[in-house]
């Protein structure tokens, strides 16, 4: 694990609600290496997108504490003019919803061309157009000359996502952040887009952060995986370790709630209670503890930190050592969890 591309140290991203700041991302340490896909997994509200936005500097009114080293430069709270030299050039981002991620009034060619124009002013107009067409080809869009002149609404969702990807990779970035790139797409389109990202990874030599809630996508794409819950990373491991030997109670619960793995018509595992809202996040102790109340409180750490249980495999809190799924009583639990909420 050499070639450190991005190193996040003790990142805390807080949003202001009324008069207080609430951390959506808390105490996050992460590294992304060159030529590696790091998947960040978690459910909505876990802070995975807030983390990505912090790296790209896309938050509007957030307080960002800690350090984000990109190629040894701390880019947390970098002033916009310096950040804009990196964004779109060394760092590219793919967004979730291709239907809204493109400007409806601009032709495709200009939207991709803009990324080139901003970072590569030596290119002449014709060179730029050539490069855009080359990019459209690269992301697998048929008839690129024609698509160049088209508006977003004339393209299908899958095609638009390819355009969004073309924008992100226009300047051969070293870091590519993909925020739920296939969530809004049909399965067959999803597999095409994932294959495309894989191909691009091979010839770009870039590091990729893949944000997703879909464990299937993680299994297919990731080299390493970070699992987030309530703003914190609860487990990090390489993909094989994580899928074979998940340790943190949250990771294990997540795996058990996916229908793909379970026997048809069997009961899926249900995590008790609900994901706490930003204002109600437990700030003390193990944040997952309220959702596994049958586990004795004493097994949680007072200030849970990430422990390296094997080389490269980190788990937060010590409760994993004592965690067990409750027998066949998942139905009762559910009732339980609900009445508490």
């Amino acid at each position: 694990m050499s070639d450190k591309l991005l190193e996040i140290k003790d990142l805390k991203t807080s949003f202001r609600i009324k008069d207080d700041y609430y951390a959506a991302v808390d105490n996050v340490h992460l590294t992304v290496n060159k030529n590696e896909v790091l998947a960040i997994v978690g459910e909505s509200g876990c802070g995975k997108s807030a983390l990505a936005f912090s790296v790209m500097g896309l938050h509007n009114r957030a307080k960002i504490e800690g350090n984000i080293y990109f190629k040894d430069q701390d880019i947390a709270n970098l002033p916009p003019n310096k950040l804009n030299k990196l964004r779109g050039k060394d760092m590219g981002m793919i967004f979730q919803d291709p239907l809204t991620a493109l400007n409806p009034l601009m032709i495709i060619g200009d939207q991709i061309g803009e990324a080139l124009l901003l970072h590569n002013s030596e290119l002449s107009k014709t060179q730029r157009k050539e490069r855009v067409i080359e990019l459209l080809n690269k992301v697998g869009i048929p008839r690129p000359e024609h698509v160049y002149e088209q508006f977003p609404h004339e393209l299908s969702g899958g095609m638009r996502q390819r355009v969004v990807i073309a924008i992100a990779i226009a300047n051969d970035p070293e870091l590519l952040i993909a925020d739920e790139p296939t969530t809004a797409l049909d399965v067959t389109i999803q597999s095409q887009i994932l294959d495309l990202i894989n191909e691009l990874k091979e010839d770009m030599d870039a590091g990729i952060i893949l944000i997703t809630h879909d464990l299937g996508v993680v299994a297919e794409m990731a080299d390493r995986v970070a699992v987030m819950y309530a703003g914190q990373i609860v487990e990090v491991a390489d993909v094989h370790t994580l899928f074979n030997e998940p340790l943190h109670p949250y990771t294990r619960s997540l795996f058990d709630s996916v229908p793909n793995k379970a026997e048809a018509k069997s009961k899926l595992h249900v995590i008790q209670g609900i994901v706490p809202s930003l204002q109600n996040l437990p700030r003390e102790g193990c944040r997952f503890a309220p959702r596994i109340p049958w586990i004795d409180e004493s097994v949680h750490e007072e200030h849970p930190s990430l422990h390296e249980v094997a080389p490269g495999h980190f788990v937060r809190c010590t409760c994993y050592k004592h965690f067990e799924f409750p027998g066949e009583s998942s139905e009762e639990e559910e009732q339980h969890g609900v009445s508490r909420s």
Binding site: R87, F95, N103, E114, A115, L118, I167
Partner: peptide, 29 residues
């Protein structure tokens, strides 16, 4: 608040360009 404004920012477009190129045209419509 639209997503394509994020796309523009992620491209590295400075604020003035984000406004003139992306926001204004859409809002004058």
């Amino acid at each position: 608040q639209k997503d394509f404004i994020l796309t523009a920012r992620a491209k590295g477009a400075p604020e003035s360009r984000v406004y003139n190129r992306h926001i204004l045209r859409n809002s004058l419509l």
